[in-house]
Amino acid sequence: MTAPSKPQEPNTQHQELCTWLQAVAVKRDKQSFSQLFKWFAPRIKQFGIKQFNNEAQALELVQETMTNIWRKSHLYNKDRGAPTTWMYSIMRNMSFDMLRKIQTQRTETISDDIWPIDNALATDDLEQYEDHLQNKNIIMMLDQLPENQRQVVFGLYFQQATQEQLAQQLNLPVGTVKSRLRLALNKLRQQLGESND
């Protein structure tokens, strides 16, 4: 009794992937790309869900990776490695780019996240101190603020700039403008409290 022969599927798969990639590279063949997509997209999605724990981001990874495979297919060299290795390296690079982008977005918005009362300070306190801000006493208090906080208060209350306009004018993130405003208003409130005692 002879032993069953080992399936040739992995080698056949390798040849098919090489053929499809070559057809995409040389002919921009959409049918071959469709075959690559059917084979590779579910694997990318599975990897993306593990990486991001988010289906929408996993699908974005599928789209970005497959777009790059379409654009860069001419760079694949079968003598240097398997098509799967080449495609997975593109997928990993795209996932790193996405993770960096997500981290950058988190860093840029952290000021908004940690100061949830900024909007209240920017509106309620403005109404509360609107009359006082015209007072010379308040202007003297403003002079005692650090320069970066004084710039923000003057820009918002005397120049009537929005936080976004001021951020652009000072070349700062909006979150930094909000943080400086919060600190300045807290100091003014303390000074007002002391002067009223």
Results as ranks from 00 to 15, higher is better:
17 L>N: 01
30 K>R: 14
15 Q>H: 05
81 G>N: 02
30 K>A: 11
57 Q>G: 14
186 N>S: 12
196 N>V: 15
39 W>N: 09
74 H>G: 05
143 D>N: 14
7 P>I: 05
141 M>F: 05
71 R>F: 14
190 Q>H: 10
152 V>S: 02
76 Y>M: 03
84 T>M: 00
46 Q>G: 14
121 L>F: 10
76 Y>R: 13
56 A>P: 13
44 I>N: 02
116 P>E: 07
68 N>Y: 01
65 T>C: 06
16 E>H: 11
136 K>T: 14
65 T>F: 00
118 D>Y: 14
82 A>T: 04
99 L>G: 04
26 V>H: 15
72 K>L: 11
136 K>I: 12
131 D>M: 12
86 W>R: 02
87 M>G: 05
106 R>H: 11
60 E>N: 08
27 K>P: 00
118 D>S: 14
67 T>L: 08
110 I>F: 15
69 I>G: 04
162 T>M: 12
53 N>D: 07
88 Y>W: 09
170 L>R: 06
57 Q>H: 14
3 A>G: 13
17 L>V: 01
161 A>F: 11
109 T>A: 10
181 L>H: 06
44 I>P: 05
40 F>I: 00
19 T>L: 12
157 Y>C: 03
193 G>R: 10
8 Q>F: 15
80 R>W: 05
96 F>P: 12
150 R>G: 05
67 T>F: 08
127 E>T: 05
146 P>F: 06
158 F>P: 00
102 I>E: 11
3 A>N: 13
89 S>A: 06
92 R>C: 01
176 T>Q: 12
5 S>N: 13
64 E>G: 03
92 R>A: 00
78 K>Q: 10
179 S>C: 13
13 Q>H: 10
122 A>R: 09
37 F>M: 10
100 R>V: 02
112 D>N: 15
146 P>T: 04
54 N>V: 00
85 T>E: 01
35 Q>R: 15
7 P>C: 07
165 Q>A: 14
153 V>I: 09
12 T>C: 13
137 N>P: 15
34 S>Y: 07
150 R>H: 12
134 Q>N: 12
96 F>G: 03
35 Q>T: 12
156 L>V: 04
43 R>W: 00
124 D>K: 05
132 H>A: 07
107 T>M: 15
42 P>T: 13
122 A>M: 12
64 E>P: 10
104 T>A: 08
6 K>L: 14
10 P>F: 06
86 W>N: 02
53 N>V: 03
7 P>E: 10
142 L>N: 06
192 L>A: 05
101 K>V: 15
30 K>F: 08
49 I>C: 07
182 R>N: 08
77 N>S: 11
80 R>E: 03
10 P>C: 07
31 Q>I: 09
62 V>R: 01
100 R>T: 07
47 F>L: 01
15 Q>D: 02
181 L>G: 00
117 I>M: 13
43 R>E: 02
154 F>N: 04
36 L>N: 01
42 P>Y: 13
38 K>P: 09
150 R>Q: 12
3 A>M: 11
137 N>F: 15
151 Q>L: 12
66 M>C: 00
31 Q>D: 09
31 Q>E: 08
119 N>G: 13
53 N>Q: 08
66 M>T: 00
132 H>N: 07
36 L>M: 02
